[in-house]
Design a protein around this nucleic acid. Structure first.
Length: 195
DNA sequence: TAGAGGATTGAT
DNA sequence: TCAATCCTCTAC
């Protein structure tokens, strides 16, 4: 069953990031369904330097971060990789959760075809890789997660609290002290998380 | 309008 | 450790 807007529109972005673990991200693109369980996330709040919306800075790129929770925020990183985020909080907030890794479930055949990988192993174990496998690009930027192209489901996959690890986020050294915030969440010992 | 740099990845 | 690769933002 699809998560509705009330799940995303809570004020604590780190809580949403934690609770997204074990949920299932689904895309339906050109009639092809692919899905995977979320096993790694990172929280980004407008109050800290790692976030594109720090100091409420709004640009054409991050404009959708300020929309109501439940929108998607997809952007191109390093000119090569699309990164997929879920906007959280009320309209005007500027918080989001980066989806960093999935455990493939449905449409693995399509994922292999899209990525040119030899097999499913580590095919979605990183933020740039999972978007390629799921067929996500900037055409999906600004979509709402209750729509028909991309959404997140609750499938009753249990993730006990004591199996969740929290640590510093990846690749944001420029954020100074905020880079040390333990806002990266992973399912412990899951083989599908990023390096 | 030019220049610098990035929420990554895979090969060396 | 380093290059690929191009869009975005800032400064002039």
């Amino acid at each position: 069953m699809k998560l509705d807007e009330s799940f995303y529109q809570r004020t604590d972005v780190t809580l949403v990031a934690r609770e997204l673990l074990g949920k299932v991200l689904v895309t339906r693109i050109n009639r092809r369904i692919t899905s995977g369980m979320i096993v790694e996330t990172e929280a980004y709040a407008h109050t800290e330097k790692g976030c594109h919306a720090y100091l409420n800075r709004m640009t054409p790129r991050n404009e959708v971060m300020f929309r109501a929770g439940g929108h998607t925020y997809v952007y191109l990183c390093y000119g090569i990789h699309h990164l997929f985020n879920v906007v959280t909080g009320d309209e005007g907030t500027g918080d989001a959760v980066l989806i960093r890794a999935l455990q493939p479930i449905d449409g693995i055949k399509h994922m292999i075809e899209r990525t040119g990988a030899a097999g499913p192993k580590r095919i979605t174990s990183g933020p740039g890789k999972l978007t390629m496998a799921m067929g996500i690009d900037r055409n999906l930027n600004g979509k709402f997660l209750t729509g028909t192209q991309v959404w997140i489901e609750e499938r009753g996959l249990a993730v006990p609290k004591n199996t969740i690890n929290a640590g510093p986020r990846i690749g944001i050294d420029y954020a100074g002290a905020d880079a040390a915030l333990p806002w990266r969440f992973t399912i412990r010992e899951n083989e599908w998380i990023s390096r």
